[in-house]
Write a protein that binds this DNA or RNA. Structure first.
Length: 154
DNA sequence: GCCAACGTTGGC
DNA sequence: GCCAACGTTGGC
């Protein structure tokens, strides 16, 4: 059982969108970074839990908990010419990009803001990848102790 | 809108 | 393989 943090911009995909999806489940497509791809493809397991994090918004922060319900499989949006994430370099016979399916477990009672997380960056959340200067990965692992602490803030 | 960080691309 | 140019991310 591992924990993760997955970023989304609420203007393009929000927790409301996820809540409204059939079975509150969606494919987490469009990731185009090799490090993140490797985690989606190789490390995420069914049953793992992930924070849903809002970036590029007024108040960046964690808004919900999701569960991985389908492990890594080829990201079909890479094969679709009309898709914004189309990648002519991804061969259907040897896919370059992967995605997982996530299901909304529950919304948090409130947003745990980035500002609040940063306030603990030197103690309880020391080493958390999200808080590392310059980090831009859209998928990051979260240590169990960090996960637990963050939920205690809720 | 700015800009620092950093990944990718491509000429050499 | 180097590295400058370029594009993207994402907080502010």
């Amino acid at each position: 059982m591992h924990y993760w943090l997955m970023k989304t911009e609420p203007a393009s995909f929000s927790v409301e969108d996820l809540a409204a999806a059939p079975r509150r489940t969606t494919r987490w497509d469009g990731v185009r970074n090799y490090q993140a791809r490797n985690m989606l493809r190789d490390q995420m397991q069914r049953g793992d839990e992930a924070f849903l994090y809002y970036s590029s918004t007024d108040v960046p922060g964690i808004v919900a908990i999701m569960q991985i319900v389908k492990e890594g499989y080829p990201d079909v949006t890479a094969f679709d010419r009309k898709d914004h994430h189309y990648d002519p370099g991804s061969d259907p016979l040897n896919p370059r990009w992967f995605m997982v399916d996530v299901q909304l477990k529950r919304r948090l009672a409130r947003t745990i803001t980035l500002e609040e997380l940063r306030a603990h960056a030197r103690k309880e959340l020391r080493g958390m990848l999200l808080l590392r200067p310059g980090n831009r990965l859209s998928v990051t692992p979260v240590e169990a102790a960090h996960w637990k602490f963050i939920l205690s803030l809720e």
